[in-house]
Design a protein around this nucleic acid. Structure first.
Length: 131
RNA sequence: CCAGAUGGUCGGAUGGCCGCUGGUUCGCUUUGCCUUCGGGCGGGCGGACGAGAGGAAAGUCCGGGCUCCACGGAAACACGGUGCCGGGUAACGCCCGGCGAAGGUGACUUCAGGGACAGUGCCACAGAAAGCAAACCGCCUGCCUUUUGCAGGUAAGGGUGAAAGGGUGCGGUAAGAGCGCACCGCUGCUCUGGUAACAGGGCAGGCACGGUAAACCCCACCGGGAGCAAGACCAAAUAGGGAUGGCAUUGGGCCCGUUUCCGGGCUGCCAUCCGGGUCGGUCGCGCGAGGCGGCUGGCAACAGUCGUCCUAGAGGAAUGGUCAUCCGAAGGGGCCUUCGGGCCCUGGGACAGAACCCGGCUUACAGACCAUCUGGCUAU
């Protein structure tokens, strides 16, 4: 496979709506959604995980929203590159705290959210409940 | 030095690590397309080089380019907009220069600034009276026996009001009044200066003609509509359509000739192609009323000319993330002081993200700097 450090992006509205129907986990700095990809006929190998980013008007004006998405993108590049599951699509939703939280905290939020969403019944969830 | 006015410029800096978008170029690769079999185009991966948000990118309020639709030309009506004069501009409701009015000691600022003899309407409350003249109090004259009162004159005084039929002064008068005169204002005619708005003057008239057009309205000028989700192209799927060929045309259904017989038309299935145009993709989409600098003309807006530069192009929307160092006004605290201030700590980085592109306007904005000018203080 390629040595690229980037990952495919979700760009279509239909993809975002599909992932929104999947599993969902909230952390102080972000909300993570995940759903399995639709495989083409005859496709055996799962394709690379894809990621999308969203910020609603609650986060702030246009400047605040794009900045929140940029921080999420930088965090996703560090975490999801290695730990995302192939064959799944992820959506990261910005919150108001996305802008104020320090970057290490944001990375920690994303890592915990990824663990929780991948093992919904693991002891992790009970030991560290969200909110 | 302090306070202020106007115009303009900028709007964090440097570096490390990791990324994104599109461009040029090199290498590897290719179940795609074309091929004269050399290759070319396209796709994928990687490397190198240089580029990548704003003064408002914002609000979407005006003016244009561009695109599609409508329309024979022109005009009129309706509707909407603009409204002192001259100039600038592709155009404007914008800009520049002037005029008038208002404010400021001043630099300067502000302005819905055409028409009230075309017509209609309105002018609340108060007040005697609000557009046509009018007498509430008062003043004066006469009558009457005095008070009460009656008749008449009077717009100078009081009172009301946003506004009361010119203002001030002198004369005049019973008291008054443009009744007379002077000055100011007004109206008409006229002269001078100015392209003009307008300004200044002369003569005449005793003064008549109130305000309101961000009330209807009148006049002059301007305007066809919708917008890049415009629009053009490629094109899975699906509904319906067409052409050709094959099968069926035994039969069924419907329609027509009144019915039967007989005849005609429509209706079926499959394949290929055309056409269609959804998801998706490509273009539109970056050389332009272009930026910067000089010279010339102009008070200026701006124009002309010469040189030079090419400078974002996304699409759940790139133009960054992170770390370090530096810089940063007011305010607060401390120390020093030659009372001008200096040093240290703290504090503290605004408004805001291109979405087809230009010209404006409006609104938001931490802070820094420059130029010109005004008023004041001090010194020479």
């Amino acid at each position: 496979m390629s040595l690229s450090r980037s990952f495919p992006r979700l760009r279509k509205r239909a993809d975002f709506l599909r992932v929104a129907r999947g599993r969902k986990v909230a952390r102080p700095g972000l909300v993570l959604q995940m759903a399995p990809q639709e495989r083409a006929d005859g496709q055996l190998e799962p394709s690379k995980a894809r990621v999308g980013f969203t910020a609603s008007r609650k986060v702030g004006n246009a400047v605040a929203r794009t900045r929140a998405k940029r921080r999420l993108r930088a965090a996703a590049q560090e975490i999801l590159m290695t730990k995302a599951r192939p064959g799944y699509d992820y959506v990261l939703i910005a919150r108001q705290a996305t802008l104020t939280r320090s970057f290490p905290e944001l990375l920690d939020d994303l890592e915990k959210a990824l663990q929780m969403i991948s093992n919904p019944r693991s002891p992790n969830r009970r030991r560290e409940p969200t909110q």
